[in-house]
C-alpha cells in the first residue's frame, strides 16, 4: 500500500520534472539561465486554473480527459519509483500497456480533428503514420522481452533480466535503446518532433493541441509527459533489474530519471531535428534494432 501511494505521488511529480531538467540542460548549452525545473509544473497549474475555450466545431468535450485517463491506466502496469507497479495483473499486462497508449493516442487525434483545421489534420496524420512504425518496434521489443523471460507480465520480464546475468544485461541495454527512441516518439521530443519551435507546419504533437486551452491542454500536455516518464521508468526498471538493487531503489530510480532527462536535453542541444521524411526511417531503424533484440533473445533461449 505504501509503495502504491509512493508511486502515485511521484507519478504526478516526476513527469514535468523530467521536462524541466531537459529544458535546463538545453538552456545550459545555449548559455542561458533557463526557467526553473519546476516551470512545467507551474505551467500545468496555470492551465488548470484557466477558462476552457473549445473550437466551435468540437462536440467532444472530454477528449483531454480520455487521453489522460488512457495514459494513467497505462501507468498502472509499469514499475515505478517503488520498484513495483501500482497494479499487478497476472497476464499480458504489457499488451494492455500498449493498448492503453493507443487508446490515449486515439483520443488525442479525435480531439485534434474536431477543430477542423488543416494544422491539426497534418499533425494527426503524422502522428498516426509514425505510430504504425513505432508499434512494430514496441511490439517486437515487448514480445522479445516476454519471450526471454517466458514472462506473462512485466514483473516476469524484470525477474528474468535480473536472473539472466550477462545475457540479461545485453538484452536490457538493447531494449533500453529501442525504448529510448520510442520514448522520444511518444513524447514528441527531438529529433522526431521539436517541442520548442512553435511552427504549425513542422510540428506533430504540438500541432494537434493547437486549438486546445485550459484544463484540456493541461491534460494533453501532462499525458505527453507521463508517456515519457513511463518509458523512462521502463528503461530504468530494465537497467536496475540487471543490478539487483533492492535497498535505496528509489534513489537509483530518481538518478535514472535525471540521467535520462539530461540525455534528452543533450540530444536536443547537440543534434538538429530530422527532416519529416527521415523520421520514418529513424523509427524504422529502432525497429531494426528490435529485430536484433529478438534474434539475440532467440539465440540465448533456444
Amino acid at each position: 500500500m505504501k509503495s502504491i501511494i509512493f508511486n502515485i505521488v511521484f507519478l504526478f511529480v516526476l513527469p514535468y520534472l523530467m521536462y524541466g531538467i531537459a529544458k535546463k540542460v538545453k538552456a545550459f548549452f545555449a548559455r542561458r539561465k533557463g526557467p526553473s525545473i519546476w516551470q512545467y509544473g507551474y505551467d500545468l497549474a496555470k492551465l488548470l486554473r484557466k477558462e476552457e475555450v473549445l473550437s466551435d466545431f468540437s462536440c467532444l468535450r472530454n477528449g483531454g480527459v480520455l487521453t489522460l485517463s488512457g495514459v494513467l491506466a497505462a501507468a498502472m502496469f509499469i514499475p515505478q519509483i517503488s520498484g513495483s507497479s501500482i497494479l499487478n495483473l497476472g497476464y499480458y499486462d504489457y499488451i494492455l500497456f500498449i493498448y492503453m497508449l493507443s487508446f490515449s493516442r486515439f483520443f488525442t487525434i479525435i480531439t485534434a480533428m474536431e477543430s477542423g483545421c488543416s494544422f491539426e489534420g497534418m499533425g494527426s496524420s503524422r502522428e498516426l503514420i509514425f505510430s504504425v512504425t513505432g508499434e512494430i518496434a514496441l511490439m517486437m521489443t515487448v514480445a522479445s522481452l516476454a519471450f526471454y523471460g517466458k514472462a506473462e507480465n512485466f514483473n516476469g520480464i524484470f525477474n528474468a533480466i535480473s536472473n539472466g546475468g550477462t545475457e540479461g544485461l545485453i538484452i536490457a541495454i538493447i531494449a533500453s535503446f529501442i525504448l529510448f527512441v520510442l520514448m522520444l516518439l511518444e513524447g514528441s521530443r527531438m529529433p522526431i518532433d521539436d517541442p520548442e519551435t512553435h511552427l504549425e507546419l513542422t510540428m506533430i504533437h504540438e500541432a494537434m493541441v493547437l486549438d486546445q486551452s485550459g484544463p484540456q491542454l493541461a491534460f494533453m500536455s501532462f499525458s505527453g509527459m507521463v508517456k515519457v516518464y513511463l518509458f523512462a521508468s521502463f528503461i530504468i526498471s530494465l537497467i536496475l533489474a540487471t543490478c539487483k538493487t533492492s535497498s535505496y531503489y528509489w534513489l537509483f530510480f530518481i538518478l535514472g530519471i535525471i540521467i535520462i532527462s539530461v540525455i534528452i536535453g543533450l540530444i536536443e542541444s547537440l543534434q538538429a531535428r530530422l527532416r519529416m521524411v527521415h523520421v520514418q526511417q529513424y523509427i524504422l531503424f529502432s525497429a531494426a534494432i528490435s529485430l536484433i533484440l529478438l534474434l539475440s533473445v532467440i539465440i540465448f533461449k533456444v
Partner: peptide, 16 residues
C-alpha cells in the same frame, strides 16, 4: 535557420 531545424547551440551562438 538553426532554430527552425532545432539546432539549439547554433541558434544561440549565431544569435549572440
Amino acid at each position: 535557420i538553426a532554430n527552425d531545424i532545432g539546432y539549439v547551440m547554433g541558434a544561440a551562438f549565431a544569435g549572440a
